[in-house]
Design a protein around this nucleic acid. Structure first.
Lengths: 231, 231
DNA sequence: CGCGAGCTTGACGTTGTTCAACTAGAGTGG
DNA sequence: CCACTCTAGTTGAACAACGTCAAGCTCGCG
């Protein structure tokens, strides 16, 4: 893969996040020194909740799930990330620890940027800092949405949200094959896997969606939107 | 109040948030030009969800509630703010609109800083920018907590959380008089006011808390912590 | 062929909401 | 001063939503 070639550098990286377009050549060159690529197999942990936040991660290929590990195996999937999304970690610069776990859903690779180099860039590029603040606030807005949806909607609405999220934001297609287990779907929607299965089946019986194993098709997006809205 | 005196300026403001200690005299002087105080009566809206984000607000006296207005009057109180907390608004610099409403729970006053002046400070002071990022990430971490608590705990645990929050973080006292209605308590804990009332009564019957009207006393903090942990 | 992991289904009990009724206190107008 | 109304608080009963538990299923793999 080109990304692993010897003369590959941030400057000519076409996988770099749009956030980094606020940096000049020199800054990118600087950044290039303190980054490296890592390859992950399916299921492998990219970074772990509670572990030290030494690098900012930018997914360059594959797909990963970001989740908080609660007590009694009660996890909560915050989002799915795809290239070339940054996975910062809110521990920066609070306690320099990770507050969620990220694990690869498929074979993936990621660009790891040294946290101090990242901090230096923020300090030297005000435009970058502002853009990073924008990114953080966007994340907060999505969290607000998630909070409202998960606490105020009942299961049908929550499953509808999850399906629309996958279809629209992750796969950009009404048919898609997920790399998530039923348990994962449950952890996205704050319910038990049994409930998730039941609601999915109901939606299938009502001809709103169809699926076979992990291959889903949204047959009636309007109906799904209605269910999402009604809660 | 001294804060309204004519020669009152950011430089000698003892109400200024610790965030601003990263600014020098000149920057504070600059900031001083683009700020002003506003006084609010109980119940008045300081800024409104959906409205334009023209100023960053820093509460200088009183107390306010920050809440998202959902459909069908299903609101969610995100937090209570007290002096001298900043209430930024995640719309900055995303869409320059407010994404939650802030209203005064008691007579309050706030320092309103022009959003462009604030943006300018971020661009001119890297230390301030980094500190602001830290503040944003702390907010995100608290949101994660809230998300986990509200989705994975049942009502007793959620009420316990709310009481501990008020006692420890807002009033710093085991006895406190809230300016919240039962409906507000319900909106903090994502349940109906009937349920909130029932759980509060149960806790009172079990001698874990006591209350008369809006004056609460935590009698057995250990028990409350246990309830919070058990979910 | 047997094993284990993930998936599925049904029965059942618990949790939490809804609805309706009742109470207390604060304001309002005659 | 007394109705009257309005709002917030409270309670109980009925009901729906959701989780738990247990059983059976499928499929890939050794």
């Amino acid at each position: 893969m080109a990304i692993f070639s010897k003369d590959f550098r941030c400057n000519n990286c076409n996988l770099r996040m749009n956030l980094f377009c606020y940096l000049n050549e020199e800054q990118l060159e600087d950044l290039n020194k303190d980054r490296f690529e890592v390859h992950y197999n399916r299921g492998e942990v990219i970074f772990k909740q509670g572990g030290p936040l030494t690098h900012i991660v930018c997914l360059t290929s594959g797909q990963a799930k970001v989740y908080i590990e609660g007590q009694d195996k009660k996890n909560m999937i915050l989002k799915i990330v795809k290239p070339t999304e940054l996975v910062g970690g809110p521990g920066f610069p609070v306690d320099y620890r990770h507050h969620f776990t990220v694990s690869a859903l498929v074979e993936s690779s990621a660009c790891l940027i040294d946290i101090h180099a990242f901090e230096k860039i923020i300090k030297t590029s005000p435009e970058f800092a502002l853009e990073f603040i924008k990114y953080l606030n966007l994340t907060t807005l999505k969290l607000h949405d998630k909070l409202m949806n998960l606490t105020h909607k009942q299961m049908h609405g929550r499953i509808a949200d999850a399906l629309l999220y996958l279809s629209n934001e992750i796969y950009a297609n009404s048919t898609f094959e997920v790399h998530l287990s039923r348990q994962d779907v449950a952890e996205m929607t704050a319910m038990t896997k049994e409930s998730a299965i039941r609601i999915l089946k109901e939606l299938k019986d009502d001809n709103i969606i169809d699926y076979d194993n992990n291959r889903f098709t949204i047959l009636n997006e309007n109906a799904l939107n209605q269910i999402s809205l009604r809660g």
